[in-house]
């Protein structure tokens, strides 16, 4: 009888441990399943914050520019004005913003030298790109497609020729229209077929439902 009671007690303890372990597994399973969703939400919130900060900085620059003293009053002003102060680049802030309303994409990208300019974290600015204010230049952006929270170009496949994309940079909003879409083999380099007499935007990502191709979207400044 005593042994039976002991067995019953041991059994109860074992069961409670297992129940606890099972609950932990359930909690872990739910966390893993919702990981991507929460990361996307977090990412979206941070992105909006950074875009707002970038836009705020642009307005601040405009105010500063308006306060430049006139030449005649130069001697009465302090030597260093806000406009004369060299503005260092903050690599932790967005350098520009890519917006494609058709697919609901609005995402910032970092300066080329920023540690966040990495395809594992963000829409990536490719080295050798030029910004929209460079005439006949080419701004090249890459990002993952697929189903992860960093797949910012997941819905790029919905774009067609004639769709619009916008780049906000240095307080200016530039409008681009897609002129060409083509696939290339995924082998480490991409050939960019564009009109060298036009200021261009190039978007690169993996082709939907393909492991061996990448899709290149060429847009021209309008």
């Amino acid at each position: 009888m005593r042994m039976l009671n002991r067995w019953k007690i041991n059994n109860k303890m074992k069961k409670s441990h297992l129940l606890l372990f099972g609950s932990l597994l359930i909690f872990l399973g739910i966390s893993i399943l919702s990981f991507n969703y929460f990361m996307k939400m977090r990412d979206a919130i941070f992105s909006e914050m950074k875009i707002a900060m970038m836009e705020g900085d642009s307005k601040l620059d405009e105010e500063i520019v308006n306060n430049i003293p006139e030449v005649n009053n130069l001697m009465a002003q302090p030597e260093e004005t806000t406009a004369n102060v060299y503005k260092e680049i903050d690599y932790s802030k967005y350098f520009g913003v890519l917006e494609i309303p058709k697919i609901g994409l609005k995402r910032g990208f970092y300066n080329i030298d920023s540690k966040y300019n990495n395809i594992q974290y963000n829409v990536t600015l490719v080295k050798g790109s030029t910004m929209p204010d460079v005439i006949n230049g080419n701004l090249i952006l890459m990002a993952h497609s697929g189903d992860a929270y960093i797949s910012y170009f997941a819905y790029l496949y919905k774009l067609v020729i004639g769709d619009y994309a916008y780049i906000t940079y240095n307080g200016q909003k530039y409008t681009y229209q897609i002129k060409n879409i083509y696939n290339v083999a995924k082998n480490g380099i991409v050939s960019i077929r564009r009109n060298y007499d036009k200021t261009s935007l190039t978007l690169i990502t993996c082709t939907k439902n393909s492991d061996s191709l990448q899709t290149v979207y060429i847009a021209e400044l309008v």
């Binding site: 497609s145 992860a148 480490g188 380099i189 050939s191 077929r193």
Partner: peptide, 15 residues
């Protein structure tokens, strides 16, 4: 003229 750019693997299916 032709333009080429380095392009890492931009596909991901870890989700």
């Amino acid at each position: 003229s032709f333009e080429i750019a380095p392009a890492p693997d931009t596909g991901i299916t870890t989700t």
